[in-house]
Nucleic acid binder design. Sequence first.
DNA 1: CTCCTTTGTCTTTTT
DNA 2: GACAAAGGAG
Length: 737
Amino acid sequence: MSSIYDTLNDMQKEAVFHTEGPLLILAGAGSGKTRVLTHRVAYLIEEKGVQPWNIMAITFTNKAAGEMKERVQNLVGFGSDQIWVSTFHSSCVRILRRYIDRLGYENHFTIYDTDDQKSLMKDVFKRLNVDTKVYKERNILAQISKAKNDFISPEQYAIDNQGDFSKKKVIECYKLYQEQLKNNNALDFDDLLVKTVELFENNKDVLEYYRERFKYIMVDEYQDTNTVQFKFISMLAKEHRNLCVVGDDDQSIYKFRGANIKNILNFESVFTDAHVIKLEQNYRSTQNILNAANEMIKNNTERKSKTLWTDRGDGEKITFKMVDFAQQEAEYVAESIKKYVENGKTFKECACLYRTNAQSRLLEEALMRKNIPYKIVGGINFYQRKEIKDILAYLKTVNNGVDDLAVRRIINVPKRGIGAASIDKIQEYADSRGISFYDAARDEKCLEYIGRSSAKVKSFVDLIQVLRTKNEFINVRELIDEITDVTGYVRELEAENTDESKERIANIEELLTKAVDYQLKAEKPSLNGFLEEVALVADIDSLDPESDYVVLMTVHSSKGLEFPNVYLCGMEDGLFPSYMSISSDDPLDIEEERRLCYVAITRAMDNLHISCAKQRMVRGEIQYGKMSRFLKEIPLELLDTGMKKAEPTEKRRVTRPTQASSARQIINSKAFEPRQFKVTKLTGLEYGEGDRVKHIKFGEGTVVSVAEGGRDFEVTVNFDKVGVKKMFASFAKLKKI
DNA sequence: CTCCTTTGTCTTTTT
DNA sequence: GACAAAGGAG
């Protein structure tokens, strides 16, 4: 009898069937870990009788969560919406919305992004008379973030760094920063985790509740978890101990954000009875690409040994191109993509990866010149744009009157003649009374105190009050319309009539679309819910698999993705690896860069192009770069430098650590041609489009479409009773009737 | 109070 | 080279 689990290899099966107790899955790049996770969820529900709501799966991005949800849905069908599949951050928000009042916050708290944090810190600096020549907001925030990621409170931080004079200011700032956050009823990203763990520590009943609820916990990208995140999941898993973590120590690339690689390296010593499974078979890339990745990553000392192999065959060599100027590199990439597509391929198969966001500009220009559709991920996020932040600040003000940051942002946007002097006076009044900025602005006595421009402040307050009243009756989209209309925000932009202002209007319109989307999607739409969703999206979440465009992004953003045709640009010493890591006295910094490079290489399925430029502009200065040291770690036989000097005999000397016989390679390489794939597979199904079929759970229905996906068929069926469902053919066990 | 010019800083990566 | 902060003129 066949089942969905037949399509898994032995190691994957072992991981899926091992359901009880701690489990560490070391999953190399492209080894099908998402398949393992989704099948494991299916197995728990279908075979072990676990209730869907007893399962929690944590991913890193919303995109990964969404994909996982969908794939689980296809496998399980029933009750899958009861499983918690979400990111660390949104899980925490969900918990905090319910219980944060126990920590003295209000449940409709706002979430501060990096820009908000900076503004708040600026304010803290002002209050503490911090010399901005000596201290930088970013730097202090980084230190605070580090403390938070290690779950160190301001009080503890003060004790730990008592004698350290250089930390004196940081201690003060951390304390006041945290107080201000609370006054504004706001949490920053790190707080979401910290406050949840705090909540668990101080409220045993809450912890008990979630422990009972999440009997089975799975964590994806485990190598990138930090100490608080580890605390969060280990607290939850303590009772039932069914904690399954999936990760790859070679892909740990978020140390700068507090990720603790020890979480994965020491998993077995913390959970002494942990079962460990290695997934080393790669289903994504050609052997040439894997060899390059393997050879390079070997140079790292801190890792669990692991060698990826595939039975896909050697494939194409990796092309390497060195040019004189960075512009030529971009030109070369664009030209190569153009040729690639002319050969019957698509744009969306291509991705350009780079170390820093700044590199995107040249590529963008080159692609534009050649009329190649593209999308840039990262850089300036949609929600970081001025006009969007302004509108959101209005929404926040309407939603949460104590978010001083939001109120101060918009009190004079668009210009109302309320200047810095008036704002300072209101703030002064608010501080002396211990009330919020907005409440001060509403106060009659405060208006008297301001003097001249008090009428303008009054009309601003009236405006907000009207919006608040209206908010009771209208939805988010209508509220945004109301705001842009009544403030004249859009009208002002229209009058400007420049390219820039037109783009801003378009962005506001896009925000409206997003509000409508939210309205339709959310179970219980609310202003608060909208703001929350908006705060937690990452740029990568917006990647649309349907649209045909080249994707441009940093290597960091590319983690977890795969593309048939990958361009790795700017492979120069000082850029990749970064100058910071080269000049660092910690040799482990360069290892992190090497892992990053490993991630980059392993994104490629069929073709990998590496390029570098001898000269490029960085920060308005010309930099002369040498070829990246990482490139020299790739065996020369794997590279095609385009100089035709490689003799054919060299081909056979390619290191091949696997047993894959050449006969098998030929068979397999053929199997990857789409046409053949279709023919062999289609004959295996007894039903097709339009046929009536029967499903064990869903009853009878009509087949809408059959699509090939991975190693299986994805069948879409419109069931008479439950509607349209997507599922895998081998699992659905549909019977033709 | 606002607009314009000058000055300084930043660049590694982001939920 | 871009962008924000600061300073100066109207």
